[in-house]
Amino acid sequence: MASDRPRTSISAWRPSVPGIAEVFHAHFTDHAYPAHTHDTWDLMILDDGSVDFALDRRRHGATGSTSVLLLPPGVPHDGRTVTASGFRKRNLYLDESVLPQRLAGRAVDAPVLSDGPLRHRIHRLHTALVHAGDGFEAECRLSFIRERLHLHLDALRPREPGREASRLATGLRELLDSRIRAGVSLSEAAAVLHAHPTHLIRCFKQTYGLPPHRYLTGKRVDQARRLLLDGHRPAGVAADVGFHDQAHLSRHFTRHVGTTPARYQRTRTGSAPIPT
């Protein structure tokens, strides 16, 4: 029966990613937010349905899965469903290390952004944030979201890789190679190499053909393969090479190798291949 279906579903957590105060996913069918403010920026995408809201006493609306909503800190806003089916949304609450308070006025003027690439980047970031061990990837993805938001609000053009690209890429690769197990944050790498985070990622990708978080994951998978063939247990291997836990290892290992760590390890006996 329709009356038996859940009217609200919510999940929220605080990831260990600098700049993100909270991740909030929700499905509302009849909820209406009263007027309120946040201390953080509210970056929202819709996955389904429509929402109507007022920001600084001006009403706005958004429908479907193409728009991005950006609500600045300290500015009153409300929100409500438009149809009986409600809406599904994903929010990131971002602190001022991502966007400074001085840009709030421009966000009030245009809180709904029609930007497909930005929306896709936010979706990819949410996907990374679901997995606790993918913090480096999430930090890299947030850096590009920050850059694109600044492009909307501050008219800053991204810097393209120049002649120093190879030098910066080599420096980052050496840093990642030296910290395969412990990892490194994007902000730390940028500070060590004296480069802007997104510029550093662009230089790495231009030089090596893949972003740094994928390079680091591949190096960890390679080390895991060697340890598994030496007879180490998958749970111990996960910690030894820098994965968050065994499930984190299994997810990336299967994507790279085409089979689970346990099945891969059983092939070391020289027996017939095991179907995957």
Score class of each variant (00 low, 15 high):
L103S: 03
L129N: 03
G183T: 08
V98W: 02
R173L: 11
A191D: 12
V192G: 02
I180H: 02
P117L: 10
H199W: 13
R159Y: 09
H152V: 06
S143I: 05
D115H: 06
A155R: 15
P161V: 07
G162R: 12
G116A: 14
A132Y: 03
H126M: 14
E139A: 12
G162C: 09
L193T: 05
E139W: 05
T198C: 13
L175I: 11
I145W: 02
D134I: 00
S187D: 13
L113N: 00
D115Q: 02
T198G: 06
L103A: 04
R167W: 09
A128Y: 01
H199F: 15
S114I: 08
R102M: 09
L151A: 15
S185F: 10
L142F: 08
I180N: 00
I201V: 15
I145P: 04
A169S: 12
E137W: 08
L125D: 04
S185I: 11
V184D: 00
P111F: 05
A138N: 01
L94N: 05
D109P: 00
L151T: 15
L129S: 01
L129W: 03
L113D: 00
Q101D: 14
H152Y: 09
F144R: 06
A132C: 02
R148D: 12
A128H: 07
S166C: 14
Y93Q: 11
R181P: 03
C140Q: 12
I122S: 07
A155F: 10
R148N: 11
G135A: 12
L186K: 01
L175R: 02
R148W: 08
D134G: 00
D154L: 07
G183P: 04
A104R: 15
L103C: 05
H150C: 10
V184A: 10
V98P: 01
A169K: 03
E147H: 05
A110T: 14
A138V: 06
A155H: 15
V184K: 02
R102P: 04
L176A: 09
V184W: 03
R173Y: 06
R119K: 11
L149S: 09
P161C: 09
C140T: 10
H150Q: 11
C140W: 01
A195Q: 01
L200V: 04
R102W: 10
D134W: 08
G162L: 09
L94D: 06
S143G: 15
Y93C: 00
H131I: 03
T127P: 00
V184R: 05
D134L: 08
E147I: 04
F144S: 10
F136V: 08
D177A: 13
L113I: 13
H120G: 09
A155T: 13
L168E: 04
G171S: 10
H199A: 11
R102V: 12
L156F: 07
L103G: 01
R141D: 05
L172Q: 06
R121W: 01
A107K: 04
H194G: 02
P161T: 11
T170C: 14
I180A: 06
A110E: 11
A190H: 03
A128N: 03
V130M: 04
A110W: 00
R121T: 03
R121G: 12
L176C: 10
L149G: 08
V98K: 01
E139T: 05
S166A: 15
L94Y: 01
P100D: 12
T198F: 01
H150D: 08
E188F: 14
H199Q: 13
E147W: 01
A110D: 11
S114K: 03
A189K: 00
L142E: 05
L118N: 02
A165M: 11
H131W: 07
